[in-house]
């Protein structure tokens, strides 16, 4: 299989579109959440202003190499995840660098960011960062377990580890989606999705009232800007996987925008109205509710 260099500018274009969409989408979601609180919320371009502001801060102190690398790893996780998943099914331009075994790679990238963050935040020396990171790691582990099970179920179902092929198998009508062909796996994965979107009741990592803001406590200026960029890209990338695995992928940008929006909205709908679990409660919750669903999904297949 020969590598086509043209894929690189194409992938960068994808990245650009996704990042911008991510910035706008998070702002729109903030506005929607604000409406529940009966207010207007931030302007949709606010994320850009914040980004420029953070890049424009003059001082930036470091706590060591890992502190610096933390956000970089985090961003790598997000970008990498996006890069190895076909964003738009069936187009040459936006299917990125997906290969045969990219599902495993994608799972790896999901973890990669958290681990990088753990190293960086640990280096910052702030106890709340450290607590946040340990919480994050335990939560991610618990939350990714049902996802992994669901992915396994899907892989078994479609007999492939290539995301592209899984998407291909779901084409031809809404009833071909995994959502309908394997609802248990989707349910398990969506519960896991709630857990990774950093929204209540599973936002134990940031938990402002408990450990001010968790891992990023010490991050500021361009470090923070980097993380903000990641925060725009990473959820979208993750949703792209979900979309591809369970919701039939997207064959065009409008469909992509719509599906990502709707999947994202799920986490907001839940997040706005619930308080936060304690760490052990959230882990227990995943183990009691999500994991059996995942196992059941595998068994069903």
């Amino acid at each position: 299989m020969s590598f086509e260099w043209i894929k690189i500018p194409y992938a960068l274009l994808t990245l650009f579109i996704v990042a911008n969409y991510g910035f706008l989408l998070t702002a729109v979601m903030a506005k929607i959440a604000a409406r529940v609180g009966r207010r207007h919320g931030i302007p949709v371009w606010q994320n850009y202003v914040d980004l420029i502001k953070n890049y424009g801060l003059r001082s930036s102190i470091t706590h060591g190499v890992m502190f610096y690398l933390g956000p970089v790893f985090r961003l790598t996780g997000g970008v990498g995840l996006l890069m190895f998943v076909p964003t738009i099914y069936g187009t040459e331009m936006f299917s990125n660098m997906s290969f045969a075994g990219d599902l495993i790679l994608a799972l790896y990238f999901v973890f990669f960011g958290s681990l990088g963050m753990a190293l960086g935040a640990g280096e910052s020396g702030h106890p709340h960062s450290a607590i946040g990171v340990t919480r994050g790691l335990s939560q991610v582990t618990a939350a990714e377990l049902p996802f992994a099970l669901a992915v396994y179920a899907v892989a078994v179902q479609y007999q492939t580890l290539s995301v592209t092929e899984i998407v291909a198998a779901q084409q031809g009508g809404i009833l071909h989606w995994t959502l309908f062909s394997n609802p248990l796996a989707v349910a398990a994965a969506m519960l896991s999705f709630l857990g990774t979107m950093m929204r209540p009741p599973f936002d134990v990592v940031l938990a402002p009232q408990e450990i001010p803001i968790g891992p990023p406590t010490e991050y500021h200026s361009s470090y923070l800007a980097l993380m903000q960029t990641n925060r725009a890209i990473f959820p979208i990338a993750k949703i792209v996987i979900y979309m591809n695995l369970f919701f039939g992928g997207a064959a065009s940008w409008p469909v992509f925008f719509l599906k990502v929006f709707l999947i994202y909205l799920v986490s907001v709908i839940v997040g706005v109205v619930f308080p936060r679990f304690r760490v052990e409660q959230s882990i227990r919750w995943f183990l009691i509710w999500a994991v059996p669903l995942g196992i059941a999904a595998i068994l069903m297949v």
Binding site: A33, G37, D203, Q209, P275
Partner: peptide, 16 residues
């Protein structure tokens, strides 16, 4: 009380 548990929306309503 709701805010301390991460449920911000109650605070929005009651403060209003």
């Amino acid at each position: 009380q709701a805010g301390a548990l991460g449920q911000g929306v109650i605070g929005q309503w009651t403060t209003y």
